Every structure is written in C-alpha cells, then in structure tokens.
Simulated scan of single mutants.
Amino acid sequence: MAVAGIDEAGRGPVIGPLIVSGVSFEAEKLSELVRMGVKDSKKLSNKRREELFHEIVRVCTDYLVIKVEPWEIDRVIGRGLKLNKFEARLFSEIINNLKPKQVIIDLVDVNERRFRREVEKYLVYVPENILMEHKADEKYPIVSAASVIAKVIREREMDKIRREYGDIGSGYPSDPKTIEFLRRWYSERGEFPPIVRRSWKTLKRIRGLELGGGFSLFGRDLQQDRS
C-alpha cells in the first residue's frame, strides 16, 4: 500500500517561489525513513537536508515537486483566490499524480474541514484515507520527508537568486536584511525586482516609507491570510 506525505516550503516569504512537494513510500518501507533519521526539515542543517534529500528520492516509490513562481502567486491573489485555497489545489495535484492509498498532509489552514473540502473538490483520484494535521511534519516521517524535499528545492532556488542579486537575506518579511535589500532596490530603481511577490503588503509598506510614511516594515505579512 502506497502512503504519501505532502508539505510545502516558502509560503510566507516576500522573495522567491513557493514549493509544494509530495513523496510516497510503500507502507512496509516507511521504517526506512526512521532509520535514515528523517525529521521536520526546520530541525535539520542545510547539509543534512541535502544528504537526506538524495537518500529519500533514491528509495521512495515516487515523488513530485511543484514550483510556483512569485508572479504566479500574484496572479492567483489578484484574481481574489486565498492562498489556502490555492495550496489546496496544489495538494490535490500532488495526490492525483502520486495516487497513494493513504495520504498525510501538513495542514496549512486553521479549519481542517474547510481545507479538506477544498482539497477533495479537485481530486480526480481519491485515496482511501486522507489525514490532515497541523505540524504533521513533526509527527509523521513521511511528511517530514516531503518537508525535506520542499525545503531543499526552495533553498536551491534561493541560492540561484542570491548568485544573481547578492545578499537578500532569508526572503522573509521579518528579516531586516531582506527588508533593507528591497528598500534599497526600490529607492535606486523605483520598482521591485521580478523575484518578489508584488501582492505582499510588505512592498506597499516599503513604498509608503519611501514616500515618507512612518509605519513599521517588520512582522508577519498580512497577505498570509489563512482564511
């Protein structure tokens, strides 16, 4: 029986892509993940994530990665679609392609029933069991494996951006380096680079600061709506 885990990386940053990944294993091989020491990607070093990435993709039954560029996120937000609903569609696409008997999802919505309805709405292939939990990447090795894949791909994409644009920080709105990079870029050019999510309110705050506004640039970006 194939069991899949689904997770994402890069939901909140103002810079770089959103990565959604799914990975499947035969149930009798799930113990391999424990043996490898797979756990939530946030608790692993970059080096260890890279090592585990290669091990996971070598022994898994199948895996799939979806990369969503900043301009694609902006287009979705511009059409009035909430980020949670968009992610539900992406998770459905992972399920439709991997076709697992059971799937475990790291829940991004505070409302499990609402998110489940959105995922199931777009399913062509319906697993026998769909489990959705908050912090599933900490509880289930199969979801931890998906989180490792997503995080590694996201970091590789960010490394490409850094090679072209220099020190951009982590890409998160709470990172002073990221804010300084964006503020300086906008101040010198009057626009933002194509690596940013223009629908994020962080950019509106930076524009306001350059025009003489006095509000804070830091904290959780309000565009990360969980409704």
Rank of each mutant, 00 (worst) to 15 (best):
D109F: 10
N129L: 15
S187I: 11
K39F: 07
F218Y: 15
S147N: 08
D40I: 06
A136Y: 04
E155I: 12
K139M: 08
G214A: 13
I153H: 03
L83T: 07
P17I: 07
K42P: 11
P194H: 06
H54G: 03
P100E: 02
I95N: 00
E157Y: 13
E118R: 06
M1L: 12
V14M: 01
D137A: 07
T178D: 02
I95A: 00
L64S: 04
E164F: 07
R117G: 07
D7M: 10
K29L: 14
A88S: 05
I142L: 02
D167Y: 08
L203S: 01
R79F: 12
I142V: 13
S147M: 12
L90G: 03
D137W: 06
Y125W: 07
S92W: 02
F53P: 01
K135L: 11
G171T: 05
L33F: 09
R197E: 03
A9N: 04
K67M: 13
W200N: 03
R162H: 09
V143W: 02
K42E: 09
K151Y: 08
S199T: 11
V34E: 14
K43H: 06
D74T: 09
S24Q: 09
S199Y: 02
K42F: 11
Y122E: 00
A4K: 08
L123M: 01
E120G: 01
L44A: 05
S24W: 10
E180G: 01
E28H: 14
G208A: 11
D159F: 13
K39Y: 05
P173H: 06
V143S: 02
G22D: 05
A2N: 14
W200G: 00
R207M: 12
M36F: 14
E50W: 11
Y63F: 15
L30M: 12
I77G: 00
E128M: 10
V110S: 15
V57T: 11
R58S: 15
F218S: 11
G190V: 09
R116T: 09
I77M: 06
I130C: 03
Y186W: 10
V34C: 07
F215I: 15
A136K: 03
R226Q: 11
K139A: 06
E164M: 11
D225W: 09
L30W: 09
I19L: 11
E72I: 10
K177Y: 09
L107K: 08
E128V: 09
F91G: 04
R114S: 15
V23I: 15
D74R: 01
I153L: 11
